[in-house]
Design a protein around this nucleic acid. Structure first.
Lengths: 343, 343
DNA sequence: GTGAAAGCGCTAACAG
DNA sequence: CTGTTAGCGCTTTCAC
């Protein structure tokens, strides 16, 4: 039910006009005289007329809304992205529908189904950690649904993408550890199938390689759900701590893994950075007040949301099919704090 | 555009039936023979038919979606609430549209307008800190829009409400400080016009009163936007610190105020709890790993979202107007940590 | 300049 | 049991 509006018909009868005249007048059609336009718009204003978007959608086959798929809005990175998305979407008269996968492939498929089914004009998506098969998206993409990937992307679909410079993020973080004197640098990360994991790992590897340090597979641990469950991180950490040659530093990816690692180390009373240094990806505003303050790689979430939405709107509003796609790479920010202080 | 469906008409022509027969068959009407039902549903399944929700909404005047208004999803409390809302909404075939006020009255009015205008079936709202006049909601409520308030409520509208036990939260926090030996307990809080502020303040007052300590107005500081801007908290804190009789403890409300206060105290190198103890409302999962670990009042956000949605759905699905309303009060949880350790 | 009419996809009286 | 018809609110030909 629409709780705030009279209809075009009401205006028509009140003004003794036809609905089509009113409709055209409201849309400022050249066919309508200035007089009636004024009459109509005046009446509309006065009675707080607002077109019923549902009827418009049905008629026009467009809903002026865009769908969003993220893993979870509890993650500050994603809520920042969403704020960026909203800022651009609202400015352009679009509204957004947010859904969460909670890192589940099944939920991702379900959400995407729901969204398209609810007639969105375009989709912004960051893939779940479980997602390997993207058939559900390929189909939609082929049918012409505008899609823009952000954060966790795929190269199986050719469209606009907006990501952070994950390679550099991993590289910078690792270099910083090396520069601070750490040598046995472990890496706890998300599953290897998602893009960000590979890219960050590549940066980590490159840095070690340049420092002449061999990659030790024992030092690389994957959390199947990107740290969604505390147990994943616990296992990873325990395995690292039980190595004969324990790491002296850890580089973590993903907010969840990072903060959980910090918590677990504290719980184990392992001194950071004296026994083990820690640097990780996180967008929490609390990095400064953690114990110890946490060196981190910060991603421009808000900007990522804005950029992705701009690209999506380009696709949605394009008069003709688009075949040239861009991948925007945004810089990350390395912030060094106590958790990686020089030994 | 709907990217995933054939229409009822397609089915009808394919099966040589009328659209109404198909429609009824799909809705399992008693008027239709088992045979044709099977035929229709079979064909529908096979061709992945899904009703166009836009058309359904237009026809039925219901959209099966509910609107949410919160201050900001970056606040973990609200993202937890939203998760609770989603869990119940999805289970019942409703989807949700999330909007943020960023503590602005203007944005609240705008969002509510947008939402109703987009034909929501019901509204879940936590008022912005700026909101004093709720005429925009009263009108809608009178027109019959089901509304459920949560967290920050108003008593100017008679409907279901779901809140935390704010009085007890304030009372418990203050008692805990008193029990730990603190006597000069300051309070930094949100504006006095919102419900949670008054209720928590009442708890704080009661505890002091019971301890035979007079309320000192100099110890009560309000942040006009609930700590949205760091400057608000900075001012409040500076005023407290420049008192001749400095407080030895602070009780803060709202996630934002709490964590900002912690950050500022750290920045000022004021030792917590030795120089000033700190306890505050926060739902961050990081309370344990803050420096120092932070005593806090935790609110059952997820549950609040669930309950509010259940009540809203009751209203939406009610066959006849509802005149009996409930206010559910959920318990909060006091978690004591290092920031309020006994002196 | 204005209006009549069709139709977006669906539902629901009402006939048959 | 099935079909015809009207209509949700809007836009858009096509007549007048």
């Amino acid at each position: 039910m629409n709780f705030s509006s009279i209809t075009i018909k009401d205006i028509a009868t009140a003004l003794n006009l036809s609905v089509s005249t009113v409709s055209k007048a409201l849309r400022d059609s050249y066919e309508i005289s200035e007089n009636t336009k004024k009459l109509v718009t005046g009446y509309a204003q006065e009675h707080n007329y607002r077109p019923n978007p549902i009827a418009q959608s049905l008629k026009q086959g467009r809903s002026k809304s865009i769908g969003i798929v993220v893993s979870t809005i509890e993650n500050q990175f994603f809520s920042q992205v969403i704020n960026g998305i909203e800022s651009v979407a609202y400015e352009n008269g679009f509204n957004v529908i947010i859904t969460q996968t909670h890192e589940s492939y099944e939920l991702e498929v379900k959400n995407v189904g729901h969204l398209t089914h609810r007639s969105i004009d375009g989709l912004l998506i960051s893939l779940s950690t479980e997602t390997k098969d993207i058939a559900h998206l390929k189909t939609l993409h082929k049918q012409g649904l505008p899609i823009v990937f952000f954060d966790r992307v795929t190269d199986e679909i050719d469209t606009h993408k907006v990501i952070a410079d994950n390679f550099k993020g991993g590289y910078d973080a690792t270099c910083h550890l090396l520069d601070s004197g750490y040598k046995r640098i472990a890496h706890i990360t998300s599953p290897a199938n998602i893009s960000i994991t590979k890219e960050r790992f590549a940066g980590y590897s490159k840095a070690l390689e340049e420092a002449g340090i061999a990659i030790d597979d024992d030092y690389i641990k994957y959390c199947p759900h990107g740290g969604r469950d505390i147990g994943e991180v616990e296992n990873a950490l325990n395995e690292l701590l039980s190595l004969k040659n324990k790491p002296d530093a850890i580089f973590t990816t993903s907010d969840r893994i990072t903060t959980t690692t910090l918590m677990l180390l504290n719980r184990l009373k392992i001194k950071i950075p004296q026994e083990i240094a820690l640097i990780g990806y996180t967008n929490t505003t609390l990095a400064d007040v953690l114990n110890p303050s946490l060196s981190s790689v910060y991603q421009p979430g808000f900007e990522m949301g804005q950029k992705a939405t701009q690209k999506l709107l380009e696709l949605i509003l394009a008069k003709r099919p688009v075949y040239e796609f861009e991948t925007l790479v945004l810089p990350t920010q390395l912030v060094t704090r106590d958790s990686t202080a020089r030994q």
